[in-house]
Each structure stands twice: as C-alpha cells, then as structure tokens.
Design a protein around this nucleic acid. Structure first.
Lengths: 339, 339
DNA sequence: CTGAAAGCGCTTACAG
DNA sequence: CTGAAAGCGCTTACAG
C-alpha cells in the first residue's frame, strides 16, 4: 500500500481493474470508440479517488517535446512584463505548455536582475526548450537562442523572427493629434535611453508627426527608465529659454519624473505644462493629475505572442501581428498656457 | 546524420567515441576518479560542439522528481510579486529547480487574473510538482495543495506549514515611533480590505502602538488595494470633524490614493497632512513628495522562501523565518500642523 | 473493446 | 577506467 509515493497510471489501472494503457487512453481523452463508457467511467473515478496527476516528465519524454517555452524579459519588477507573462502563460496553459521566465538583464530597467545589490545572475537556461518568446531585446541577444523557434515581442518586424508588435507609431501619432488639437506646438520628448525598436519607433513617429504640424517644434532629451533620471532630463527641457508646452515621455514612470521636475519649478500640470506617458500601467492613475497616456495591452501581447509561437511550433509560419495602442486622455493634458 | 533532431547524450557519446553512460557521468560532474581526465575533456568538447542540452524530462523521470515548484501569487501585475518570483527563481535555478507561477485569484489585487475583462482562468495546476510556495493567501486555499510540501510566505506563522514572513509588526512600530516623534497623535489607518495575516498584523501593531502613545487616537477605514478606492476611503477620514494629522496606508498604492484625497481638499503633504505607505515599490519614489514607507524586501522573501522549501524537500524542517522591514523616511512625513 | 510491449533520454548500480 | 543494462512513467502502434 503505497502511501508516500505519488500515484502513477499503473496504480490507477490496478485500482480500476484495467490495464495501464487503458488508463492512458481514457485520461488522454482518446478513448471514445476504443474503450467502453463504463470502463472509462471506472478509470476516471479511480484516478479521482487516488488524486492522480500525470507525470509531465514522462509524458514529455515520450512525446519528444519539452512543452516548455522560455519567456525572456528584462525584468519582472515592472508590472508591464508581469502582464506579458500572465497573458503568455494563460495561452500556454490551455495548450499544455508551461512558461519559464528568463530575466535577461539589459541594464535599462529598474529592478534588473544583474543590477548591483543583486544576489547573482540566473543560470543560463541550459535545459532543452521548445521555443522562445523574447520581449524588448537588443538584437544581439536573440543569437543566444538562435537554434530555437522564436517569436519577438515588441521588436523590429523587419527581423528574421516572426513578431507581435504594438502599433506604437500609431499611438504616438494619436497622441500628437490630441496635443496638436489642444494647440500645442512646442514639444519636448523625454526619451528612454534604450536602444530598442519600440523606442526608436516612438521617437521617429513623434518627430514626423510634430514636423507635419504647422509651426511644430521638438526638443529631445534622454534618460534611463527611472523616475529620478527622468526628472533630471525633463528639468533640462523645462529650463530651456523657450520651453516646451508639453512633455511627451516614453514611459509612464518617466512621466512621473516629469511631474516632479514641473513641481520643482512651480509649474502646474496641466495648466502650465502638459505631460503624457506610454504604457498605462497602475502608475498612470496613481499620479495626480491622472496621466494621459497610450495604453499598450501587455497581457494581450503575451497572449498573441504565445499563440504565434504555438503556430510556429506547429510548423506554420505566423504573419507579423500588430496590436493597437489606445490613446487614453486623462487630466494631464490641456491647452498650452496663453503667453 | 540527424540535423533537425536535438542532440542527445547518445549523440555526444558517438561524437566523443565513448559510451553514453560515460557522457552522463562526465556531464553530471561525477567523473573524477571514474573517468580519465582526457576522456572527460573529449566528452565536454563534443557536447559543446554539438550544442548538447540535457533533456530535463528524461532526467527528472529517472530521478523521480519533477524539480518543479509552484509559486502561488495573487497577481503578477503588482511588481511586489514579480520580485518575489525573481528571488524564488534565482535560488531555484541554482538548485536545478524551476518555478511555475500559478496566479491564484483572490479578487483583492488589481490585475487579478479572474477579474472581469480577463480571458479566463488558468488551468488548475494538474501536473505533478514537488512543492508549493504560497504568498499572501486566504488560509483555505492551501488545502488545494494539501498533499504537497509547502512553505507559506508572509502568512500566519501559527499555521501548520513552515513560513517566511516579514516582521510587519516591527515595521509598523518603527513607523509609529517615527510619527510619534514628529508629534503626531491623531492617526488615520487606510487599511487594505483583505483578510490576510499580513494586514491583520499591520492593523494590530498599529492599534497597539498608537494606544501606547500618550494621547494617541486612531480612526480606521478600509478599501481595496487600488488608488481610486483608497482615495475615497482616505477622503472619509479627512472629512472627519477632528481629522487625523497622518494617514497610515497599508500599501504604497493606497498611499497614492491618499495623496489624491489630500490634494482634492487642498491639503499640502506633508505640511497639512503626513502620509505613509508600505512595501516601497517603484511608486514610492515616483510620487511627489516621495513617500515615507516600510520597505519589504520582496525578492528576499522569494529567495528565503525557496531556500526553506528546498530544505523541506530535503527532509529537514525549516524553522520560521522573519525578514526585517526597513523604515524608509522620505518627504511625505513632517510634524503635524500647529492649530 | 482491451492488453502486452516498445521506447522516449536520462542516471546509476553492476560487471568487467 | 569504461560499458551494457535496467528502469523512471508515460503514449501509441500492434495484436488479439
């Protein structure tokens, strides 16, 4: 009477008075037409009674698949990537896959696992995996996984791997249209000092859209994705002789920094200065005034990315997908001050 | 010539001109004294050349362990739990374990995977696992995993399972000492409407510490862990005839709500009202003024929790551990206004 | 409709 | 020092 051992399909078979292969057929859902309903029922009851859970290692070994996908993110300290994970893991779970997170350090994000004060780097993922889902990476990183089917998230669609992207350029254009409509002409860009497609794309779209605005002018500064660094960078723009009437920030957290720079100079938001973010994370509604931003559906990015990867693993070739970002107008934008 | 197949230890053996068991010995690090250094070197070179990665499924099947641990969290949209994961996964990786996240919905956190608008719940973790690391749970949830070794994180140390906790009561006492030293006597508690040990503990410690303060008085209100709900709840306290001079909030995000309630009433922080949080997440320094709070080392919680679970799986019985929270004094607290 | 058997890729006694 | 062999728990032809 095995009390300590985890029950196997063999135990279930014995309890149900059938063969192990019958158990496998029934629990695998392949029994109709091959096993009598009565037997199937008995098997299921026995499995339930014993609290049987299939050993995935055995299943995967037999099937020759690991059913494991690696999700490469810069950090999980940012809720954006937590949401990406959640979306990916949901879709994966429905297909019997699991998602292992590999925090790839790129130094650009707060909470980076290789940052100082950190206990030590993750071990490199030396296990065999079926595929890779990689977010927001420098291009060279992908080489590390070059022998594996991969889908890039929020990365250059011109690359070799299939991509699922946000339409960040559209989002930026919608933002400029909103701001232009309010009367803004002098734009400041508080850009993320991160060499990634998504940020290059935002910068390019912003520049083009402001250019297309009659009388539009743009000044630009860069900072790490961090409130303190963004505050300092935004301050440089605000100290300009002909300072911008709106600060467009590459990230909600950077917008929080811009708020602080404005307050330090006695500028009211949005009366004296409009500020916008990007992402729409919890921060956006935690700030005062609430932040006008572009919502990037992070969870959907993870979900669609996993769906694309599953297609790829299935031998199909997923086309590039683009997820719309939604302009969310809140209280941090208003017409520029009269002068 | 297998080009598409993943190389196995058998392929490495063939390439190195040795047997498969020798490869296993060498790559498993058990060769010294059993395999000649020259052979070991040849094996390693062959493995490297072929890009060999061990099949974990086969290894785990053979070893009779899944080397998988389930981390149960309410959400990953909160960076706190992202950090817990990171800490747990680091320690796990060093011991050849992997961590599968199971977002257990309890409805108390923003971004809850079962909240409306969500695509659907995760599949129940039906796979066999070695152990469970469970954070911030209602006690009844643990039953779901009752047949599995488990460590509770930030949960009641009086329970049956080993625990790793924050010394939240100490943290709260340090906070009250700081505030009492500034001269505060009328305290408002913006409490999380969540029935969990950690919040009961905070509430109890706050009440006791204020009680011990000569002339100390405490009013209390509850809200969901959400800026909007906290704003409303804080507002109720601020509209009291004899309103508190400080709002002690159970979470940084709730403190952001308190900021908004104060601003809506024209109250300056910290001139007219002091506000404190709990956690010290990114939000704390993104707010203006920066938030006085109690830092809870989330990553360490995950790391120590995993270490305890590993001990448990090793047959030892880990004692309860408690991680100190650190009072971080920033700009949101000051002496109460003179009246 | 049901069962006996092979085999996925490892680790580890065991034999030489 | 090295190799042949057993067996972990599954899935799936294959035979009855």
């Amino acid at each position: 009477m095995p009390t300590t051992r985890r029950p196997t399909s063999r135990d279930v078979a014995q309890a149900a008075g059938v063969s192990q292969s019958t158990v496998s057929l029934v629990l695998g859902g392949k029994w109709p037409g091959r096993v009598s309903p009565a037997t199937a029922g008995a098997v299921r009851r026995a499995a339930e009674r014993l609290g049987y859970r299939p050993n995935l290692a055995a299943r995967n070994l037999r099937l020759g698949t690991t059913r494991t996908v690696l999700l490469v993110v810069p950090t999980l300290s940012n809720p954006f990537f937590g949401d990406v994970y959640t979306g990916a893991a949901e879709v994966a779970a429905r297909h019997g896959f699991r998602v292992v997170v590999y925090p790839w350090p790129d130094g650009a994000w707060p909470g980076d696992p290789w940052s100082p004060g950190h206990a030590g780097p993750f071990a490199s993922p030396r296990e065999a995996i079926d595929g890779v889902l990689a977010t927001a990476l420098a291009a060279d990183v992908l080489e590390e996984f070059s022998d594996t089917p991969a889908v890039m998230l929020d990365n250059d669609p011109a690359g070799a791997a299939p991509t699922v992207d946000f339409a960040v350029a559209d989002g930026m254009r919608a933002l400029v249209a909103h701001l232009g409509g309010l009367g803004h002409r002098r734009f400041g860009h508080v850009a993320a000092a991160v060499d990634q497609w998504t940020f290059r794309e935002r910068g390019g779209a912003l520049a083009a859209a402001v250019d297309a605005l009659p009388g539009g002018a743009l000044v630009r500064t860069t900072a790490a994705i961090d409130a303190g660094a963004a505050k300092e960078a935004a301050g440089r723009l605000l100290d300009l002789p002909d300072r911008p009437t709106v600060l467009v920030c590459d990230d909600d957290l950077m917008a929080a920094g811009a708020y602080k720079a404005a307050r330090a100079r006695g500028l009211d938001i949005p009366g004296d200065l409009s500020v916008t973010g990007f992402d729409d994370d919890v921060l956006a509604t935690a700030l005062e005034p609430e932040l006008t931003t572009v919502r990037l559906p992070a969870r959907r990015l993870g979900a669609e990315g996993m769906a694309a990867l599953l297609e790829l693993l299935d031998g199909r070739r997923p086309g590039p997908r683009s997820l719309p970002g939604e302009l969310v107008v809140r209280a941090s934008t208003a017409p520029p001050p009269r002068r």
